[in-house]
Amino acid sequence: MPILEVRNISFGYGLHTPFAVQAIDNVSFSIEKGECVSVIGHTGSGKSTLMQMLNGLLKPDRGQVLLNGKDINETKKTAAAARFRVGLCFQYPEYQLFGETCAADIGFGPKNMGLAPDEIRARVQKAAAIVGLPSEKLEASPFDLSGGQKRRCAIAGVIAMEPEILILDEPTAGLDPVGREEILDMIRRCRAEQGATIMIVTHSMEIAASISDRILVLNKGKLHLSGTPQEVFADTQKLHEIGLDVPSYTRILRALRDKGFDLPDAYTLPDAAKLLCRLLKEGGRT
């Protein structure tokens, strides 16, 4: 049984006003335990809205969200409980920090779960270690951290709840390449060490290709494409239809192939690099 299953959900904002928007339109998919799934799509395609329905913050107008086979919107209580089981870290989470110290801020979630102080402290330490926040920073005010550290502190706040599924809404937005790699490393660590089930919303094809087992492509509230990175990026036509593209290195490989080099497709940077190195060594056209 999939850990999370979404059946035909739809959601509209501001219905009955001149600003009505159908943000999500009849979307279905499911996530298996331990999977890492990327959600890509243009600005305004409904990614954030979709994520907020997965943890019960927004109630779909139609359709169901099943967590371990049970509808999370059955009662108000189950919807509230789902917030701890599906950890959602919002876009630009650093703007939601408020604690006097980082430790207090990270501990906010566990505290709301009603855990004992010792347990909270242990979880704060653990979460800080996972995101790579230096432990001496735990006693500092979150407002004194650098941008990247703030981001990691905020993500730790969600990880500390030890949710069954971790959802990160554009975790790398607005970070420099180093900050971005750090976040991606953190996600890889989370998966390797804890076997976490993770969903990532991103604008970057490269991130989606390199980190995920599966990709969901949203367009104007509808599920446009879904599948493994190989499947999704093989369907270039359908990506181009909505103005998206394959990762940059895949484009390079394809351009070389058009010039007559014998190269297969590759969707992650290391794979592409390997192919190119081999090509350089062999050096010849076929």
Binding site: Q52, N55, L57, K76, A80, R83, F84, G87, L88, C89, F90, P93, Y95, Q96, L97, F98, F108, G109, N112, M113, G157, V158, M161
Partner: peptide, 29 residues
């Protein structure tokens, strides 16, 4: 508010006292 609710802030589920306390997490940011 949504972001704090996602971390279990009792903004819409707790009793009046809890809700008022949870408001700090909204007003500071």
């Amino acid at each position: 508010m949504s972001a704090q609710k996602a971390r279990g802030a009792k903004l819409d589920t707790g009793n009046l006292g809890q809700r008022i306390k949870a408001l700090v997490s909204v007003f500071v940011p």
